[in-house]
Write a protein that binds this DNA or RNA. Structure first.
Lengths: 252, 252
DNA sequence: ACAGCGTATTATACGTCGTAGAGTACGAGG
DNA sequence: CCTCGTACTCTACGACGTATAATACGCTGT
């Protein structure tokens, strides 16, 4: 459910930048609930994060959460900002003068974040989350791209393109894994399951010659029905090469 | 939503490749319901596509749909396959020997499809939809990449990366537009709305110097808070340049 | 022409969701 | 000690997907 509609932006900003609990009487806080929600989503997926379930884990009733989270739409934004703020905690971007490794570090950090919090790939990154975590992340990433010969606009475009690529391929990877039936450990099993039905349905096997050839090659070399992780690595490589070309052109 | 879980793959394949209605008694068919659902989603978003609503528009009760659509999860796959099959109806890929324009055509067709059916960007493209529309699209796209000097695996990776980039930036574009409050026609309005609250919340304005500078430049030159469409164009350009470099290297 | 069967369709109901609205209990200021 | 604001609880509503059982229609074999 990729809904990010119905967010009350002003209420959200108040919650996002809230420092300490509003009252000492509170058993819960915006931060504690957000942390709990993120952990729950990491464990059982975003659909498991229902107001009632969250309240149960927090030891309060469902309605007690609302003063701290606004509503479900706002809670999701709080969760996004929370993980955005943690993106570069584990692996920060090197200060080296090699801009290629800095871009790779951005890609890897976001990739790792998607692996750690698969549910974020289900959420659209349209309008930026106006919170401290997302702002810090944005600042960090722009700083890594600053001074390598790109204009401000080019920096922004390049970063957005890079992050779209990473999130898109990550989403494909996770969707592939998440759709597995119990007992299916490999894509091969899934393929073996549906192949007979598919063959009878299609009838004519020569209808998709190129697709058949590529699928066969892919299956033989990687053992997968599709390979978004490989696409991620190739895509980032291609992007970096493209950037290098632009810099060289304008730089000299 | 971006749920694509809980799909009964075998049932789905049967529905996807179903030719004519199973019985002349049927007032409705898999195809008619799918078409209706796509139109409804185009008009009012994926959340408006509920079983009851769809049934109402079709003139039957909710439960009458189930023999034709399987369940909601399967219906979404049917919808995806439907629009995938129509991707190259309006603008087919030129047969020219210029592979750059063929790749651009792939990107543009997918971009246009996302504009026409914004809800598809909410759905993960993990495991491929095993239907005629998606298969035809895949075949068409691979054929456009065939014979330009890439290995089968590279073709697959490149295509996946390209489509991830297009879908990701399209999603960002549409999320920005879709999140608008009634009466907000420009990003500028949204920004003007939240800016005071944000400034008081952050307090220190120098906390995000690079982000502030880039945002200001972007706002001045494009009038937008972010510019995923520009990122799309730049990203595709960078990818193509990267591909050219690889081809030149290995080709000679 | 007619009986019987399979299936398209309906009616009803269950458990879940987000959350509105009214009521309750507890710490702080007079 | 009393009152007041507010953190929290209780109850309830409408919408969701869909299980289940009942109904009505058209095709097939005689």
């Amino acid at each position: 459910m990729a809904k990010r509609t119905g967010v009350d932006e002003l209420k959200l900003i108040g919650l996002l930048w809230r420092g300490s609990p509003t009252s000492p009487r509170s058993r819960i806080s915006t931060r504690s609930i957000t942390t709990l929600a993120v952990e729950l989503a990491d464990r059982e997926g975003l659909d498991a994060v229902t107001i009632r379930r969250l309240a149960e884990e927090a030891g309060v009733t469902a309605m007690a959460l609302y003063p701290h989270i606004g509503g479900r739409a706002e809670l999701v934004e709080l969760m996004l900002d929370h993980v955005a703020g943690a993106t570069y905690e584990a692996a920060s971007i090197p200060e080296s003068t090699d801009w290629r490794s800095r871009i790779t570090a951005i890609a890897e950090a976001n990739w790792a974040s998607c692996r750690a919090h698969p549910w974020i790939t289900d959420l659209a990154t349209g309008r930026p989350v106006p919170g401290p975590g997302a702002s810090t992340k944005y600042e960090t990433e722009l700083r890594a791209l600053d001074g390598i010969g790109l204009s401000d606009i080019d920096m922004e475009h390049t970063l957005t393109a890079l992050l779209s690529l990473v999130q898109g391929t990550a989403r494909a990877t996770l969707a592939t894994q998440g759709a597995r039936q119990p007992g299916e450990d490999q894509d091969v099993d899934w393929w073996a399951n549906i192949e007979p039905a598919l063959t009878t349905a299609i009838g004519d096997r020569t209808r998709f010659p190129t697709a058949s050839r590529v699928s066969r090659t892919l299956g033989e070399e990687t053992g997968k029905a599709n390979d978004p992780e490989g696409a991620y690595r190739r895509g980032v490589g291609l992007l970096i090469d493209g950037i290098a070309q632009r810099i060289d052109q304008s730089g000299v």
